[in-house]
Amino acid sequence: MRFLIAFVAILGYASASVISPLVYGVNAGDAQAAAIDATVAAQDHARAVGESQARAAEAAVQFNTEAVRQVAEANRDLHENAYWGSLAANQNAVAAAQSHAAAVSGVVAARAGLAAPYGIAAPYGIAAAPYGIAAPYGIAAPYAAHGLGIHGW
């Protein structure tokens, strides 16, 4: 394509310089100078076209490089966020499991604490209340674990 543009430009300038002496009746020296000027102008035009295409190609390469960099950065951010999100979710799951284990241990300790000070065993879910009064079938036990049971003070 560059060759065609340069060829057309050279052909246009050259034909203008060849025809002009016939039309205007210019002498040979002026015709030769006009031909040289036309050739130089065509070469300058062809050089300008080549330089503009080189600048356009360089701009395209820079644009593509920047686009690739942005996509890579976006992917890195997504993967980093996914990693830290999954790490936080795992830590939350472990904390929840530890919290539930602590709650179960607290309930077991509270139930054992109701029966143990008075020497009363609490088999089969029958919990003992203060002063040796038993609440059959574990009725008072769920409330006693939370501090809502019968108090002996």
Rank of each mutant, 00 (worst) to 15 (best):
M1D: 15
R2D: 12
A6L: 12
A6N: 09
A6Q: 10
A9T: 05
A9G: 04
I10M: 03
L11T: 15
G12I: 03
A14L: 15
S15W: 07
A16N: 05
S17F: 04
S17C: 04
S17Y: 04
I19S: 02
P21E: 08
V23S: 13
V23I: 15
G25W: 00
V26P: 00
N27G: 11
G29I: 10
G29Q: 13
D30V: 05
D30W: 00
I36W: 04
D37M: 05
A38K: 02
A38I: 02
A38T: 00
V40Y: 06
A41R: 12
A41M: 15
A42R: 04
Q43P: 04
Q43N: 07
D44S: 13
H45N: 10
G50A: 14
S52H: 06
A56E: 06
A57Q: 02
E58V: 14
E58G: 12
A59F: 11
V61P: 08
Q62D: 02
F63K: 15
T65H: 13
T65A: 15
A67N: 06
V68K: 14
Q70F: 10
V71W: 13
A72N: 06
E73P: 09
D77R: 13
L78H: 09
L78Y: 11
H79C: 06
N81R: 03
N81H: 03
N81D: 02
A82Q: 13
W84E: 10
W84M: 04
G85E: 08
S86E: 07
A88S: 00
A88F: 09
Q91K: 09
A93I: 07
V94I: 11
A95H: 02
Q98I: 00
H100P: 01
A101S: 03
A103K: 07
S105K: 05
V107D: 10
A109V: 03
A112H: 00
A112P: 02
L114N: 14
A116I: 15
A116D: 15
P117E: 10
Y118K: 07
Y118G: 11
A121M: 11
A121K: 11
P123E: 12
G125W: 04
A127M: 09
A129Y: 05
G132Y: 01
A141G: 01
H146S: 09
H146C: 06
G147N: 01
G149D: 08
G152Q: 04
W153L: 14
W153H: 14
